[in-house]
C-alpha cells in the first residue's frame, strides 16, 4: 500500500509539473520583433560559454544572464516588466 501511495505521488508530481511550466509562455520570433523597442520588455540572453560566445546572433540590448548566476540577477530585475528569456 505504501509503495502504491508513493507511486501515485510521483505520478501526480509528473503530471502537475507541465501544468506549472505552462505558466511560462512561449513567444514567437515575430512577436518579439515587434516588442524590441518597447521599454516594458527586458530581454535576457541566458546562453553561457561557447553557446553564447561563438554565436553570431545576439539581440541588441539583451542582458546576459547565465543560469548559474540566477540567484544573483533574478532579484535585480524589474517585476513590472515583461521578461523574455532566450537560449538559442
Amino acid at each position: 500500500m505504501k509503495k502504491f501511495t508513493l507511486l501515485l505521488l510521483i505520478t501526480l508530481c509528473f503530471s502537475i509539473s507541465p501544468t506549472l511550466a505552462g505558466a511560462i509562455n512561449l513567444m514567437e520570433i515575430s512577436e518579439l520583433k515587434g516588442m524590441l523597442d518597447s521599454d516594458s520588455v527586458v530581454i535576457l540572453d541566458v546562453r553561457a560559454g561557447r553557446d553564447w560566445s561563438t554565436s553570431e546572433f545576439k539581440i541588441p540590448g539583451a542582458i546576459r544572464a547565465s543560469g548559474e548566476d540566477f540567484a544573483e540577477w533574478s532579484t535585480t530585475l524589474p517585476k513590472d516588466k515583461k521578461l523574455v528569456l532566450y537560449c538559442a
Binding site: 546562453r47 553561457a48 560559454g49 561557447r50 553557446d51 560566445s53 547565465s66 548559474e68
Partner: peptide
C-alpha cells in the same frame, strides 16, 4: 555541457 560553461575558456 562543458562547452556551455564559461569555465571552459
Amino acid at each position: 555541457g562543458l562547452a556551455g560553461h564559461d569555465i571552459i575558456e
